[in-house]
Each structure stands twice: as structure tokens, then as C-alpha cells.
């Protein structure tokens, strides 16, 4: 870990030197090409990324899902599928519907991952419901990620800036990471035959944009931001007194995905 920080520091220094010498031409903004579509005239959604050099060793991001604000519209699921052209029946993110009766029985469903929204109440239940809510799910971005631990070829890994991503050029498609993920956010893409998962839209974040699902959420139930920025919404929430939980704490994975309003029955 120390070693990688050192290397990162060196990378950064040489980068700055190059910039000062003018060997890297143009604006730093152009370091990452937008890929087909121009980004310049679209305002940045996360401040302090586009106009600065990306120092991987100093980045800290958090994702917060506010269950008390989720209306189960499934915009996030649709956006996610469109952003990545996710093949049918595989889900980088999904929204579950929870119902709790007066005997503490929990009924959960998630038709087509919430992609089509929730148009109908559950008709198979004939019990009075005490509590009901939606729970969006996505990658927990564990700080001690089981998927990267078990990947036999180093094809899935935690970047120095804290994102767990998949190198689809090295993945052999063994499926071990899928078994290891306690949250079942991974799947084997039937088209590319490699493991795939939510990346918190790493490519968007690097361009100063919010993850696709956060951008489309109409109620602000999904929040993403920089923890180093004291003014960001996530910083404020995480430094406040509200009850913040993570999923499957007992797995010891130390997620960076936090929940507000998650009842104890949420798994």
C-alpha cells in the first residue's frame, strides 16, 4: 500500500512537471476525452474535478442511498441499463420493494430489477402491511472487497482512488468473484463473457459528472460525492447525527455505500 502511494506520488510529480514544461498540450480538461460527445459546454456536476489534476491517492468518494426518499420509479435502473447497454436479466443496480406485516414477516420482490417500475401493488399478499419501502441496490464498493480478494488473475481490483472495477481485457470469466460478492451485484455479461458490476460510473466521475443513476434520480434518494469536499452533501450527511448503516456489516467488507433509513430487515 505504501509502495503504491509512493509510485502514485511520483506519477503525480512527473505529471505536474510535464504540465509545467508544456509537454502535455492544452487544457487539463482534455486529459480525458469525452468519447464521441463534447463535454466542454456541459456543466460539471461534481466540483473540483475537471479543473484539477486527478490525484488517485487522495480521493475519497461515498455513495449514500436515502431509503426515505426512494419512490421506486426505477429511473436509476433505466439510466444504468442505457449507460452501459446492460444485457437483459443482468443488473448493475436494482430497486427492491419491501413489505412488512404485523408479525414481522418480510416480503420482498423486484420484478425485472425494477426496470419497469412498480405499476401494481403485490396482489399475492393477503396480510395487513405495517411498513413498506423501496431499497435501491448497487455496488457497495467495499474497502475490503471479497471480489478482488478472490479474483485469480487480478482482473478485478480496487483502484488507488477507491473504486472496485473490472479489467475486461484480463478477466477469464471464471465467475469466482460472482460467488464471493455478498451483495450479488456481479454478473457474467453474456455478451462479453466477462464479469461485470456497478462501478459508480467511474468514467463519469473522472469527467466531473455524477453517476448516471444519481443524475436521473428525481427525488435525490441517491447521493454521491467527494468526502474530501466538506461542502458536499455526502460529507455533511456523514458528519451529521443521522443513523447511517451499511449492508451486511457482519461480512467485514467495510462498504463505502451507506444507507439512510434502512430498516434492520434490509439485507
Amino acid at each position: 500500500m505504501k509502495n503504491s502511494t509512493k509510485i502514485l506520488d511520483e506519477d503525480r510529480r512527473s505529471f505536474i512537471k510535464k504540465v509545467l514544461k508544456g509537454t502535455i498540450a492544452g487544457s487539463l480538461l482534455l486529459v480525458i476525452p469525452a468519447g464521441g460527445n463534447a463535454l466542454e459546454d456541459i456543466p460539471a456536476q461534481i466540483p473540483g474535478i475537471r479543473d484539477k489534476e486527478w490525484d488517485m491517492s487522495k480521493k475519497r468518494f461515498a455513495f449514500i442511498v436515502d431509503i426515505t426518499r426512494c419512490i421506486g420509479c426505477g429511473s436509476c435502473c433505466v439510466a444504468d441499463k442505457r449507460e452501459y447497454n446492460v444485457p437483459d436479466h443482468n443488473y448493475r443496480t436494482w430497486v427492491e420493494r419491501y413489505l412488512k406485516d404485523f408479525d414481522d414477516n418480510i416480503y420482498v420482490d423486484c420484478p425485472n430489477g425494477g426496470l419497469d417500475g412498480y405499476q401494481k401493488p403485490r396482489e399475492d399478499l393477503d396480510v395487513p402491511i405495517r411498513d413498506t419501502f423501496f431499497v435501491p441496490k448497487l455496488c457497495n464498493m467495499c474497502k475490503d472487497a471479497p471480489c478482488t480478494q478472490v479474483c485469480p488473475v487480478g482482473a478485478t481490483f480496487t483502484t488507488p482512488d477507491g473504486f472496485v472495477i473490472v479489467d475486461s481485457k484480463r478477466c477469464v470469466g471464471c465467475g469466482y468473484c460472482i460467488q464471493a460478492c455478498p451483495y450479488s451485484v456481479r454478473f457474467l455479461n453474456p455478451v462479453t463473457k466477462t464479469a461485470e458490476k456497478c462501478t459508480w460510473c467511474y468514467h463519469r466521475v473522472r469527467k466531473g459528472m455524477l453517476p448516471a443513476c444519481v443524475n436521473v434520480c428525481p427525488t435525490g434518494a441517491r447521493k454521491f460525492g467527494d468526502l474530501n469536499d466538506k461542502e458536499s452533501e455526502v460529507s455533511k450527511i456523514l458528519s451529521g447525527p443521522g443513523v447511517i448503516t451499511v449492508l451486511k456489516k457482519e461480512m467485514g467488507t467495510d462498504p463505502s455505500l451507506y444507507y439512510i433509513g434502512a430498516r434492520r430487515e434490509v439485507i
Partner: peptide, 16 residues
């Protein structure tokens, strides 16, 4: 079973 059997040597090249 592998999604990419042609990459099987990755197990020998970069075993984690």
C-alpha cells in the same frame, strides 16, 4: 466453463 478459455494462461502469468 471459462468465459474466456483462451485467456487461461493468465492464471499462470498473473496469479493473485
Amino acid at each position: 466453463h471459462l468465459g474466456h478459455p483462451e485467456r487461461n494462461m493468465n492464471m499462470m502469468l498473473t496469479p493473485s
